Structure formats: C-alpha cells, structure tokens
Simulated scan of single mutants.
Amino acid sequence: MQVYPMTVEGEKSLREELRQLKSEARPVVIAAIAEAREHGDLKENAEYHAAREQQGFIEARIADIEGRLGSSRVINIADFTNNGKVIFGATVTMVNCETDEESVYKIVGEDEADVKQGKISVTSPIARGLVGKEEGDATMVKTPAGVVEYEIDKVEYI
C-alpha cells in the first residue's frame, strides 16, 4: 500500500471537503433525484440523469478522499527544528541564478499542490531538485523551459 505524505493543513482541508460532501452536497443531490423521479418517465428525464451523474461525482470524490486519508501520513513540520535543510513541508525561498528572480514555494503532498498559492508537490521536478539541499546551496532544476539553476536563499518551517 502506498503512503501519501500530507501536511496538517492538507489533512484539515480534505477532512473539511469530506464533511461538506457528506453533510451538504450528498443530501442536496438525493433530494434532486427524488424530485426528478416525481416528474414521471425516467428514461427521458434530463433532470434525473443530471442529478444521478452529479451523485456519481460526489460518491467518487468521497471514496477518493477517504482512500487518501486512510493511506496518508500526516507530517507536522512544527515537529522539526530549523536546520536549514529542505524537507517535506518546508517553505523555500530561492533565486534564479540567471535572472535574480525570487520564488517562494512550500513543498506539500500531491493533493495539496497549487502553484498559484506557492505550493508544489513533493514529487514535482522543482521539489525533487530542492529536497535535501541546504540554505546557500545551488541546484539545477528541470523545468518546462529547460534546466534552470537556483540558489536556495532561505528555508523556513512554517
């Protein structure tokens, strides 16, 4: 069985989504199915088919979240001392050696990744290039634009 690393925030977010799906979305779609059934012939009832499709999406997402939570390992970054080393959960400030452009990323689990919020998956090429390095180290990272050299400016465990 594969174990998925997850931050405390990621687990909280998934548990909240699971709660919302089970206690809010599921009852709404069940009510929509019941209402659509009252309209008669189910073969030609678009409302019924749409509600059943929505129910399928909700049930699949519930099963997916429950599976992820069941096989996750929650890692609390607050349990680690700041030794300047890049690890799962760390927030890394790095500088592009060619352009001096600064980037800040938090290394998180796959389900939590959102580049727009500065969260990258531990399995992403950038994170793989950073994990194990320390403040002041330079590293070559494969990006879609090619190989880029970065210097790790700061590592925080927040």
Rank of each mutant, 00 (worst) to 15 (best):
Gly40His: 05
Lys154Pro: 01
Lys106Met: 11
Lys119Thr: 03
Val8Asn: 12
Val147Phe: 14
Tyr105Ser: 11
Val155Met: 03
Val115Phe: 15
Phe88Tyr: 13
Val92Ala: 00
Ser124Thr: 02
Thr93Glu: 15
Ser23Glu: 07
Val8Phe: 15
Val29Glu: 02
Tyr150Thr: 00
Glu151Tyr: 03
Asp111Phe: 08
Ser124Glu: 02
His49Arg: 02
Glu24Asp: 10
Arg15Ala: 13
Asp137Cys: 13
Lys119Tyr: 13
Arg68Tyr: 04
Ser23Cys: 04
Ser72Leu: 03
Glu47Gln: 15
Gln20Val: 11
Glu38Ser: 12
Gln20Ala: 12
Lys133Cys: 15
Ile152Cys: 08
Leu69Glu: 05
Met140Lys: 08
Thr143Asn: 11
Tyr105His: 14
Met6Glu: 10
Ile33Thr: 09
Asp137Tyr: 14
Glu101Asn: 12
Glu17Arg: 14
Gly70Met: 09
Pro27Glu: 05
Lys106Gly: 01
Lys116Arg: 10
Glu110Arg: 14
Met94Lys: 14
Asp100Thr: 07
Asp100Glu: 09
Ala51Lys: 02
Ile65Ala: 00
Gly89Ser: 03
His49Ala: 05
Glu102Ala: 12
Ser121Asn: 00
Tyr105Ile: 11
Gln54Phe: 06
Ile87Trp: 07
Glu66Pro: 04
Ala145Met: 06
Ala51His: 01
Ile62Phe: 10
Ile77Gln: 01
Thr99Arg: 14
Asp100Tyr: 12
Val155Ile: 02
Asn76Lys: 03
Arg61Ile: 01
Tyr105Cys: 13
Met140Gly: 07
Ile158Glu: 13
Ile65Trp: 00
Tyr48Gln: 09
Pro5Ser: 04
Asp79Met: 01
Ala63Arg: 13
Ser103Arg: 09
Lys12Glu: 10
Asp100Leu: 12
Lys85Gly: 00
Ala34Cys: 00
Arg128Gly: 08
Gly70Ala: 08
Met6Tyr: 08
Lys12Met: 14
Glu9Asp: 15
Glu35Ser: 08
Val122Tyr: 13
Val122Gly: 08
Glu102Lys: 13
Lys116Ser: 12
Gly132Phe: 11
Gln117Arg: 10
Ala138His: 11
Arg15Cys: 11
Glu59Met: 00
Leu18His: 09
Glu101Ser: 13
Thr93Arg: 12
Met140Ile: 04
Ala32Pro: 03
Pro27Cys: 04
Arg61Tyr: 09
Lys12His: 14
Gly118Glu: 02
Val95Gln: 05
Pro27Arg: 07
Phe88Thr: 06
Ala51Pro: 00
Glu47Asn: 15
Asp137Arg: 12
Arg19Leu: 07
Ala50Asp: 06
Val95Phe: 02
Tyr157Ile: 11
Lys154Leu: 05
Ala50Tyr: 10
Asn82Met: 05
Ala46Pro: 00
Asp79Tyr: 05
Val141Thr: 03
Val148His: 04
Gly10Ser: 02
Glu66Cys: 13
Glu35Arg: 04
Glu35Phe: 02
Val8Lys: 15
Asp114Gln: 06
Glu156Met: 00
Gly70Thr: 05
Thr139Tyr: 07
Val3Asn: 15
Gly132Asp: 11
Glu11Cys: 11
Ser103Glu: 07
Lys43His: 13
Glu66Ala: 13
Glu156Leu: 00
Ile107Ser: 14
Thr91Leu: 12
Ser103His: 12
Cys97His: 14
Ile152Tyr: 04
Ala50Gly: 04
Lys116Gln: 08
Ser124Ala: 08
Ser71Asn: 10
Thr7Leu: 12
Ala25Gln: 06
Val8Ile: 14
